[in-house]
Design a protein around this nucleic acid. Structure first.
Length: 726
RNA sequence: GCGGGAUUAGCUCAGUUGGUAGAGCAACUCGUUUACACCGAGAAGGUCGCAAGUUCGAGUCUUGCAUCCCGCACCA
């Protein structure tokens, strides 16, 4: 009793109280950051890492500079930090590059709302003025996101942080465009885009969503045919009528036949087109086409070389081709058109119960109007072939590996990529367009004035699709092409990101690294799933089930949150995150704290420089520990963090604290000098604390600072070596 | 329609090359003798979606079916 009391007197006060994550985590992170060891150059300078050590590189998928982190971010920070810390402890030259994303459209929308509140509008500003304001706004907000990343314990090298609109990034992305233009991999062409008439921009597929809508479906008499449509307002220019070549009902009509039909504004000449795109089962099996405002119609028109006319302008109003309806917004025009058609006796019937999916803007739900627009395109085929070749040669490993198949499918079926966006907040496309013949030129140095045809060249006002720049991110984040970091740290070791990015991001990084540097972008792709709520439902603001990682960290500690995100979370699968699970790991943190208290009380005064002695029973336990370390080291290298974390949890709680500690307690009570027992406790504790460090970096670092060491030069745990398995 | 995934204890999920079914949480019983009640001890809980096949042996391999989720395509 007395001795215990005496021993306790030698322990730091904080160890005598329950573990307090809130008091611990802030100072620990500060200490790490001030040590400089997040930077591999510092590790080499201070002799922590050998200069010729193998590099291990992770590029952080840059979070939106303008937002706080959500639990999905917490998952990627945790996984990448585990890899980074593990490899650093293994003595590799370890670099994790943080970043911040300008998040193009997303941020512009946030800023537009702000402008709206202030009674302003982006349409009253010059693009340069708007860009500057959003830039300042974003840079100002960026620190909140960075602080969140710090809170989660990320051991990334802040000195190398990159923002996706840093001037050198902008310059280098524009250089890539120029190179691709000169290599004939970029061309300008007319294509259908998803046009949002509210935001006045085209949108990529991922920026649109489908909403089910019930609309009347009209059947109109069109000469000898009855055609069905849900969009009568597009029908003014319909001078082609299309049917399936095998449709016996219309066998008497031949491809290319012309006939005159009575239509909305009087008689028009129409041409018969036969095309297999027509579904004979749908409607009457006949349709008229509007190539300017429909992807399918556009493709039919391309196949047969048909005329394309714009019917609806960029604001959603009808053009002069609509004659008496010109200038009327399509939403108002529809009933007027139907009224006129009815008066002319052209309406055959109306199906009021027609449900279909309508593409809408994901931000404002405005119905997307397909429009033809002059855009820049990347020729994907030659680039995709190289990517396929690299993956087929086994140069890139996918975790889980079924994503390799998905990747290949995507690369085999890729279509040319539209990289033009009509938003201000992005990297400007360094191009000039001829105002006369519409020909486009790359002009990054802004020196061209006259087109080959003699027309005046004007600056392209569009910006790049965000994936054009983020596709180059493994290189750009390392300072390509000027920094020597590119030579040392590229190809990167792992790209860890969400499985939804298997289409959007992963292939583009593979393509650009091969194109620009003739290297794979990364050796391994690790894809995580979504973090859902405890019932497995997607977190969303409208459901009110969104958990903030920062709140969870306040409540339970970052270490507990990290464990809850990792244990049992297999790659590629979605995770159900419950507060109960996080709470369980905060109890675990306390268990570690209390067990350490017991060990330190009991080994007090033990000579740590004396030879290690184990009796037979303890030797078996030590051997088991070595076996465990061997197993988990291999599993760490295989990225099986979900199993390693669970094994360490049980090794600490059940094996160590539950069994060995109790056994040693008895021995020490019997013999105060029980060396074998004391050494067993010490070795177990220090080994498990080390092994747990990548998962629970804060509490392990804190414990490490309290535990007496065998060697004189006491280091931070983050740069200690990973336990040996021998 | 094409592709991918899932189906194991009440819930959320592990289960590596085939060899007696696992964890966390929840629920149950008992216990506060000094690391820890943010604890300990104990018990309970599953025809591994269904059917067939390969095998001495199948949660695991093969085939078919069912249900669910996700992605892509289509929607005049």
């Amino acid at each position: 009793m007395n001795e215990t009391f005496e021993n306790r007197a030698n322990l730091p006060d904080k160890l005598l109280k329950p573990y307090n994550s809130q008091e611990t985590e802030g100072p620990i992170y500060k200490m790490w950051e001030e040590s400089g060891f997040f930077n591999p150059d510092v590790c080499i300078e201070k002799g922590v890492t050998k200069a010729d050590a193998k590099p291990f590189t992770v590029i952080m998928p840059p979070p939106n500079a303008n937002g706080r982190l959500h639990v999905g971010h917490a998952l990627f920070v945790t996984l990448e930090d585990i890899m980074t810390r593990f490899n650093r402890m293994q003595g590799k030259r370890t670099l994790w590059v943080p970043g911040a994303d300008h998040a193009g459209f997303e941020t512009q929308i946030v800023y537009e709302r702000k402008l709206e509140k202030e009674g302003r509008s982006r349409f009253e500003m010059t693009p340069e003025q708007l860009y500057k304001e959003i830039y300042d706004f974003t840079i100002e907000n960026k620190k909140y996101m960075e602080d969140d990343v710090r809170r989660l314990g990320a051991s990334c090298d802040w000195s190398r942080e990159k923002f996706t609109l840093d001037p050198d990034i902008v310059k280098n992305v524009q250089q890539t465009f120029d190179k691709m233009f000169k290599d004939d991999l970029i061309y300008r062409g007319d294509r259908i885009v998803n046009w949002c008439s509210k935001h006045q921009t085209s949108l990529s597929e991922v920026e649109t969503e489908y909403l089910e809508k019930a609309d009347p479906f009209y059947y109109f008499q069109y000469g000898p045919f009855v055609i069905g449509t849900a969009r009568p307002e597009t029908k003014f220019g319909d001078k082609y009528v299309v049917m399936h070549p095998d449709d016996k009902r219309y066998a008497e009509f031949k491809h290319g036949d012309k006939l005159t039909v009575e239509w909305i504004n009087g008689p028009i000449e129409t041409t018969i087109i036969k095309d297999t795109a027509i579904d004979m089962e749908f409607g009457t099996g006949v349709m008229t086409i509007t190539p300017w405002h429909s992807q399918v119609d556009f493709e039919i028109a391309e196949r047969h070389g048909l005329d394309k006319e714009q019917i609806i302008d960029w604001k959603g109003k009808l053009l002069p081709i609509a004659e008496e309806f010109a200038g009327i917004h399509i939403s108002k025009a529809r009933p007027l058109i139907i009224e006129k058609m009815q008066s002319k006796g052209l309406v055959v019937k109306v199906d009021n119960d027609y449900k279909h999916n309508v593409k809408t803007c994901y931000k404002c739900n405005t119905v997307i109007e397909p429009q033809i627009k002059d855009q820049w395109f990347v020729k994907m085929r030659p680039l995709a072939d190289r990517a396929l070749e690299a993956v087929n040669a086994g140069k890139i490993k996918f975790i889980p590996n079924n994503y390799e198949k998905i990747f290949k499918y995507w690369m085999e079926n890729t279509i040319d990529w539209n990289i033009s966006r009509q938003i201000v907040w992005g990297i400007p496309i360094p191009a000039k367009i001829c105002s006369k013949c519409k020909k486009g030129y790359s002009d990054p140095d802004d020196i061209m004035t006259t087109c080959d045809c003699g027309g005046e060249l004007v600056k392209d006002t569009d910006t790049f699709d965000t994936w054009f720049s983020s596709g180059q991110w493994t290189l750009l984040a390392l300072g390509y092409p000027d920094s020597k970091d590119v030579d040392v740290y590229h190809p990167t070791s792992v790209m860890e990101t969400g499985h939804d990015l298997i289409f959007k991001w992963i292939p583009r990084m593979v393509i650009f690294a091969l194109y620009l540097k003739n290297e794979i972008a990364f050796e391994t792709v690790y894809l995580h799933g979504l973090v859902n709520d405890e019932k497995g439902q997607k977190m969303s603001k409208s459901k009110g089930n969104v958990l903030s990682p920062i709140d969870l960290s306040d409540q339970f500690g970052t270490d507990a949150l990290r464990m809850a995100l990792v244990v049992g979370n297999t790659p590629g699968n979605d995770l159900a995150l419950s507060k109960d699970k996080i709470k369980a790991y905060s109890k675990f943190a306390n268990k570690m704290w209390n067990a350490t208290r017991f060990v330190l009380e009991n080994i007090h005064g033990m000579d740590l420089s004396a030879p290690i002695e184990f009796d037979q029973e303890d030797q078996i336990s030590i051997d088991e520990l070595k076996t465990l370390i061997k197993e988990i080291t291999q599993e760490m290298e295989e990225y099986k963090f979900y199993i390693v974390s669970e094994k360490l949890y049980h090794a600490f709680w059940d094996t160590f604290a539950g069994t060995i500690l109790e056994r040693c307690k008895v021995k020490i009570t019997e013999d105060r000098n029980a060396k074998s027992a004391k050494w067993t406790l010490y070795i177990y504790l220090t080994t498990l604390v080390k092994a747990l460090h990548p998962f629970m970096p804060f509490i392990t670092e804190e414990l490490w600072s309290i535990i007496p060491q065998m060697t004189e030069d006491k280091k931070l745990l983050m740069i200690e070596s990973w336990p040996e398995s021998v």
